[in-house]
């Protein structure tokens, strides 16, 4: 069951790299949140109830509902054009993504630790790379935001890999997630939107030498 969920998660990741509409991003983010919720419920069976509740609150309330909602709101408020700007043509992005997927798999295999589920490792590394790729190959701040959210999801997935024994690590990761996401999404993104009208990254690339 977990395997299917994780594969679904990686599918969303691939879709992230090729999608061309902002709305899709928001939806995908929500889907990822939900998938994470499912995985954590299945995986973290031995965890204390309080912790489990906390994690569920995080994944469901925050990742699945609040974040997509905020993203949608930004899209609405800023009246984004549908298609976003890339720094790199789309087909390159997908080639890169495949290469990174391969790289993640190789890394995961060569880690060669039987205690760890290789799939987890592969997908979470892939998620991390996808997050970075979203940031690197896109010019819009909105895409950067989404990239960061994917990165956060990667961290979360990765912390699930470690499993039941280390609730502290997971909890901290979650705290970080909430904290930063809210900060970036809530405070800054809107402020930038107001300041630069179209949230173009070009407006915010004047500091250079």
């Amino acid at each position: 069951m977990t395997t299917i969920l994780i594969l679904a998660f990686s599918l969303t990741l691939i879709y992230f790299t090729i999608t061309e509409r902002f709305r899709t991003y928001a939806i995908l983010t929500g889907m990822q949140g939900f998938l994470l919720f499912a995985i954590s419920v299945i995986e973290l069976e031995k965890i204390s109830t309080a912790n489990l509740l906390f994690i569920i609150a995080e994944t469901v309330l925050f990742k699945t509902i609040l974040v997509p909602f905020l993203l949608m709101r930004i899209i609405r408020e800023m009246k984004f054009p549908r298609v976003h700007k890339r720094a790199l043509p789309g087909y390159y992005a997908i080639i890169l993504a495949s290469a990174l997927l391969l790289l993640s798999y190789i890394t995961a295999v060569s880690l060669g630790n039987t205690e760890v589920d290789r799939l987890y490792l592969t997908v979470s590394l892939f998620a991390m790379f996808t997050g970075l790729l979203l940031i690197i190959t896109h010019k819009k701040i909105f895409s950067h935001l989404v990239g960061f959210l994917v990165l956060e999801n990667a961290v979360f997935l990765f912390s699930l890999t470690i499993g039941n024994e280390m609730p502290m690590l997971i909890n901290t990761a979650i705290l970080l997630d909430i904290f930063i996401s809210v900060l970036i999404l809530g405070a800054f993104a809107t402020r930038i939107g107001r300041a630069t009208e179209s949230m173009e990254s070009e407006d915010l690339s004047q500091l250079k030498d």
């Binding site: 991390m128 970075l132 940031i135 960061f148 990165l151 956060e152 990667a154 961290v155 990765f158 901290t172 990761a173 970080l176 930063i180 970036i184």
Partner: peptide, 10 residues
Amino acid sequence: SSVGIALAYI
């Protein structure tokens, strides 16, 4: 910084 901090967390 946040990206960095996330990476550091990994």
